[in-house]
């Protein structure tokens, strides 16, 4: 990978980060009422308001305020949650692992099922299996996350009783860490499947299109002519090229995953960052709301960068097109 390209992409992060911070700053100042209310909540006492006003320099000119705001954010100082009275960044970080576990599991499930669906449909083109699977994927892509979640709860939790309805752990704490892991995994199945569902549709569809293109290409025809069995042709010759666009789309779906996680965490009572955000919205706990917005924005930005770099690394030709 050329250093010039890497530097150019890194330089692009500057205006994007600036925009993200500026949006956060502008929202606080454009919101109706005193910005200190947005930063400190409406239920603080006069002393706390004075403290926050001085901390974010709200008595200073606007450009100085922006500078202080950016400096505070750069230090990871989001202010103090007025509901819990602790640093907002600390509260957010506590909730992060549960969300990461949920999204990472969902992404893994989505990649495996998506590739599976793609290979299954592309190798049975225009057969009834292809039509059925493609229709199911289309409906999955169109379904709101909560509908899939509620349907699975109704069928497999309330109905069959195979999985718990809510939460991340059982009320009875397992004695050892292995039991704990099994318990969490048991709670994780349904929410992870629901979060994965739209991504399965996207990855499956892309794999199918890519695979169909590859199966019609010259090098695949050559492999067939040489007598390679069909499974080898798909696995060794066609899938490689077909997976390329899938890699990019996974990186670009991070924003979708994060917003889907908020809804899934509410549906399943999963104690992650999304639930924290919804609670903070109800309580008007601004440091937490702003903190999660900034964290998600920066994560999406980084994921986009990494995706582009991986893409260039896999296929250096894109640099020259």
């Amino acid at each position: 990978m050329s250093w010039g390209y890497l530097l150019r992409r890194l330089a692009q992060l500057v205006p994007t980060s600036a925009l993200i911070l500026l949006v956060g700053f502008a929202l606080i100042h454009l919101a109706p009422g005193d910005p200190v209310l947005a930063l400190a909540g409406e239920h603080g006492d006069a002393e706390y308001y004075d403290f926050m006003r001085a901390k974010f320099g709200l008595d200073q000119p606007l450009h100085e305020q922006l500078f202080t705001f950016v400096a505070n954010m750069a230090h990871g100082d989001l202010g103090t949650s007025y509901v819990q009275g602790r640093p907002a960044s600390q509260i957010i970080l506590e909730r992060l692992p549960a969300t990461l576990l949920l999204t990472a599991t969902a992404l893994t499930i989505a990649s495996i099922l998506g590739l599976g669906f793609g290979i299954f449909t592309a190798t049975r083109r225009r057969a009834w299996q292809d039509t059925t699977a493609t229709t199911v994927l289309l409906a999955t892509y169109a379904a709101p996350v909560f509908l899939i979640g509620q349907a699975l709860i109704l069928l497999f939790a309330l109905g069959a009783g195979w999985f718990p309805v809510q939460g991340m752990t059982s009320a009875v704490t397992p004695s050892n860490s292995f039991g704990h892991a099994v318990d969490v995994a048991h709670h994780l199945v349904l929410p992870a499947l629901v979060l994965a569902a739209p991504e399965v549709a996207v990855i499956g569809r892309l794999t199918r299109v890519g695979l169909l293109q590859e199966l019609g290409s010259d090098h695949v025809r050559t492999a067939r002519a040489k007598g390679s069995p069909p499974s080898i042709v798909v696995a060794k010759h066609a899938l490689r090229g077909a997976v390329m666009p899938v890699v990019t789309v996974i990186g670009n779906r991070v924003a979708h995953l994060a917003s889907g996680a908020v809804v899934v965490e509410v549906v399943f009572g999963w104690p992650g960052m999304g639930r924290l955000l919804v609670d903070a919205l109800r309580d008007q706990d601004s440091p937490i709301i702003l903190g999660i917005f900034l964290l998600v924005s920066l994560t999406v930005m980084t994921a986009n960068l990494l995706t582009d770099l991986v893409y260039v690394w896999l296929d250096p030709r894109v640099l020259f097109s």
Binding site: I20, L27, L30, S286, I289, F293, V296
Partner: peptide, 23 residues
Amino acid sequence: MRGTEALQVLPRFFLALVVVAYF
């Protein structure tokens, strides 16, 4: 295009949440 690229990265869903929270 620089502006468009920067804007494309903003997570719309979360931005909408923040706007609803403040306004």
